[in-house]
Design a protein around this nucleic acid. Structure first.
Length: 286
DNA sequence: CCTAAGTCCTGAGTGC
DNA sequence: TGCACTCAGGACTTAG
């Protein structure tokens, strides 16, 4: 492992983990503690404008002098709300924020705050996103997103049942479609379907009303437990210092190909579904 | 060579 | 024939 261990980390740490909803939520809470109770931006420096969408230093300069009122999460996005603008950020696959004065490889953006702290966005694969938007344009971007999975009003069995009618995609692919419900990525889709005892390959339209309820309950309990564990840290970053998630120890199927099912002891099956690694138990999930 | 957490785009297909 | 929508597959990128 060539990963450089980070020392003297703040609460933000050097987050390197799977950015699905629980991870983004964890990052969001940490960032809010750093900016609390609200910090004015002294400078906003771009080091690389080639992320998922191009961004220019000139656009970033609009943030200078703005006060960050709060940072919130919508879907897998982070939104830094300032007086006049919204800094929209997506972690992509490998994006992370840390507090620190040092500069390392793949640092793309630095915010200097009046409280003396610096927030740095790092993203090796550059699948992440940084955008400075007006309220109107932010709303436009978010208009395509489905309900928050932890919203008991928007994400219900009735909703899942209705929205899966006529859908021929596999239920796992459906769950990961951010237009249907947000925040569920490849790890938690496998995990939630294991809890729901439904096989990931099931055609969405064949989900029954009762199964829709099982899916809603499983998605919510999985995500809430993961948030309590501060997310999942896995693979290359497993040994990184700093704030590390703990949910990887609770994964029941993801990354456990051929290992014993925690329920029936039969080997966990790995298959590619919609181009993504999918883990499930052929015995427990129907 | 393979794999990887997310999203966006294209093109083929379907149904009205 | 359009039009709107669905869905599968690939592309983007770097690192191990």
């Amino acid at each position: 492992m060539t990963f450089t261990k980070r020392k003297n980390l703040s609460i933000v740490g050097f987050w390197r983990f799977m950015p699905e909803l629980p991870e983004v939520e964890t990052v969001c809470r940490g960032l809010n503690k750093i900016i609390a109770p609200g910090s004015t931006i002294l400078s906003a420096q771009l080091h690389c404008g080639q992320l998922r969408e191009p961004v220019t230093n000139q656009q970033c300069k609009k943030l200078v002098g703005e006060k960050i009122k709060n940072i919130y999460r919508r879907a897998k996005y982070l939104v830094f709300a300032t007086d006049q603008y919204y800094l929209l950020n997506h972690l992509g696959m490998t994006g992370s924020w840390r507090e620190g004065q040092d500069k390392i490889k793949h640092d793309h953006f630095t915010l200097h705050l009046q409280n003396g702290k610096q927030l740095v966005f790092n993203d090796p694969r550059r699948f992440g996103l940084l955008k400075i938007l007006s309220a109107k344009n932010l709303a436009k971007r978010f208009s395509v997103l489905g309900p928050e999975p932890l919203d008991r009003v928007g994400f219900t069995a009735e909703y899942v049942f209705a929205q899966t009618r006529g859908r021929k995609v596999a239920i796992k692919t459906w769950l990961m479609d951010q237009r249907r419900v947000v925040g569920v990525g490849n790890i938690y889709a496998s995990e939630a379907l294991f809890i729901a005892k439904i096989k990931p390959t099931r055609v969405a339209a064949r989900i029954t009303r009762n199964e829709a309820q099982q899916i809603v309950t499983a998605v919510q309990s999985t995500l809430e437990t993961a948030i309590l564990s501060k997310g999942t840290t896995i693979r290359d970053y497993r040994h990184a210092e700093g704030d590390e998630g703990g949910f990887q120890d609770q994964l029941k199927v993801y990354d456990r190909a051929n290992e014993a099912c925690v329920i029936c002891s039969k080997p966990i099956f790995l298959q590619t579904l919609g181009g993504r690694s999918t883990y499930w138990c052929k015995s427990c999930q129907k």
